[in-house]
Design a protein around this nucleic acid. Structure first.
Lengths: 202, 202
DNA sequence: TGACAATGAAAACGGTCGTTAGCTATAATA
DNA sequence: TATTATAGCTAACGACCGTTTTCATTGTCA
């Protein structure tokens, strides 16, 4: 943290503070202090507070699209429903505990109405990306006869919605983590029971 | 609006403004102006800005628990799955378009991390109340052999999650209302197809 | 060495924040 | 009618807001 370039340090300070108190709840002096300099010096690196915010969103958007989001797990296609659930569970645990992802979600929740861009980002991350990812996987599983034939996008929505809702709940009430993980587990179990075909069934 | 008592008018002005720009984005002078008086005069009715906010939350919480929330539709038990869906669809359309409910949801989204109370309220409204309501209905429908026997709470979560998620999406992007209502419709159709037993099946 | 760009800090800007004090008009109460 | 509580106003408070100006320090390159 100490050895990062200043411009980047500012963004991480902003991420932390905006996630705690929201955009309007944080002054530039406080951001500066958390980045190890004085308020006015911020303007050597950014044009203003709004610019800091936008750059921060650029950063987390890049992180999201590139990193943990899709590419890693999308290539290794699951060989069974159990493996699919295992993978999903792993991604959920990561998503819940990773510091940057968590702070990003909090900012997205608080600032989703600030601009059209924020609204679209929130929808993309909380709904569309997840749904698309699993729709693709489900389509493949259906072809291989491992999943009941149905509209893959619809099934993906059924699969993803309870998870998304419960993760929002975890963000608000992290003390209920155990209960929430249990509910997600039950949901997955149920999903397999209802939609999976036994692999030896031909 | 003009003929309301001042104390109430202030709350509705606050509801409107907080829903647009969030708690920290609105000054007391602006609230006062929208209620038809000057900033300092607010203090004849409330102890301060925080007090206005808390009173507003008290009001909408009361509205919610009492009014549209449960009592009306819970007593008239649905006689078929189709009727259940019809009722649910009607409630969704109301929830989406009612001004007060919509503004309440926006405030809940933006201020969910402001206090423990706000966090609990958000979870209650977006998850627990809906889930409980439908868990009760589903339990009844299962007893009458109209719904596949399963854990009613789990089934309620499956039923409610996509709706809740899509309504959040509507709040952010109301221009996508048509698409969203269509998805909710498809979800209900799917739910009936998967879980309902034909009534003449005995 | 001298010129120069980069990066910091201090001082100060006008504006807005939530809040308090003090005054005035009206309405209810004795 | 005299008194008192109510509810509005203006003025003003100190604190903080985002931002600009000005100056000092540094390291780079000619």
């Amino acid at each position: 943290m100490k050895d990062m370039p200043t411009k980047e340090r500012i963004l991480y300070a902003a991420l932390d503070l905006f996630a705690k108190k929201g955009y309007d709840g944080v002054g530039v002096d406080l951001i500066a202090e958390n980045a190890g300099l004085k308020g006015p010096s911020l303007y050597r690196h950014y044009k203003g507070k709004e610019d800091i915010f936008n750059s921060l969103i650029d950063l987390v958007a890049f992180h999201y699209e590139e990193g943990f989001g899709l590419k890693k797990k999308l290539e290794e296609f699951p060989d069974s429903m159990d493996e699919l659930i295992e993978n999903a569970m792993e991604r959920i645990r990561f998503t819940m505990h990773d510091d940057i992802v968590r702070k990003t979600r909090r900012i997205l929740a608080m600032e989703q109405f600030r601009s059209k861009r924020m609204a679209e980002l929130a929808t993309r991350y909380h709904v569309e990306n997840l749904q698309q990812t699993y729709a693709g996987i489900f389509a493949g599983l259906m072809e291989r006869g491992m999943l009941r034939k149905d509209d893959p996008e619809l099934l993906a929505l059924e699969f993803v919605s309870p998870v998304s809702l419960l993760i929002h709940m975890y963000d608000r009430q992290p003390e209920r983590e155990e209960e929430i993980l249990d509910k997600i587990g039950k949901h997955f179990e149920h999903f397999v029971k209802v939609y999976a075909k036994s692999h030896s069934g031909f």
